[in-house]
Amino acid sequence: MSRQALAELFSRCRAENRAALLPYMTAGLPDPEGSVRLFVAMAEAGADGFEVGIPYADPLMDGPVIQAAGDRALAAGSGVEVALDILEQVVAETGRPSVVMTYVNPVLRMGPEVFAQRLSQAGASGAIIADLPVDEALPFASALDRHGMGLVLFVAPTTTEARLENVVQASPPFVYGVAELGVTGERDMASSHIGSLVARVRKHSEVPVVAGVGIATPDQARSAAAAADGVIVGSALVRRVMEADTVDAAEDALRVAVGELADAIRRD
């Protein structure tokens, strides 16, 4: 898998008149063995690709659900190494293009070049680094690029026009459109920002825009999918896993939730 696999996914989804569904799940939840099964269940229910979350002790962009999930995964023995193993198995078993979601310090600790090598060996298509703005991105983007992958960059409702141009010029595999101010987590209302974020990016480029942050329900996913090329749902799915008593129960809950989301992102 590579950056190319993501590009093919987005063009296939455009042809099918739908957005891509890219669920986020913390790697190693509820435990390293059960974790792969959860991703497989989501793929069977209609997930097009994944954000595989490397659990991190200080996740600045994450709300309480993903914070708690990270703590639990770390306590169950997960971490960077375990997450990369899980990613490799997920890509091998599902064939779905996947990116890792991480914070910058674990990447620095490994070194961007080694990190990119390891991701490439695991079959990843790229990486999302939540605390890495375009200004600091170059060494990380170059390393991923050398291995045929890409660094996802963010555009937020607060992003200025000058910053947006820098993001687009860095040619990320997709732009993460931050649908809500604030950290990850479920919201009551659908985002009002996605339409304008996509339109602002489109003025400069055809790069896919994937909406995330605050998208939890099928209605919210439908609303985001009307404009965006892809939709990320994280906390709502992670919460279901955190609430489940067994891996079987978590699989069942995810199949239902992902199935509903997959229906919702068809534009017809």
Partner: peptide, 12 residues
């Protein structure tokens, strides 16, 4: 030093 911050905060 530098600015390792989420994009949402960068304009601020």
């Amino acid at each position: 030093g530098g600015q390792f911050a989420p994009e949402t905060l960068m304009p601020a």
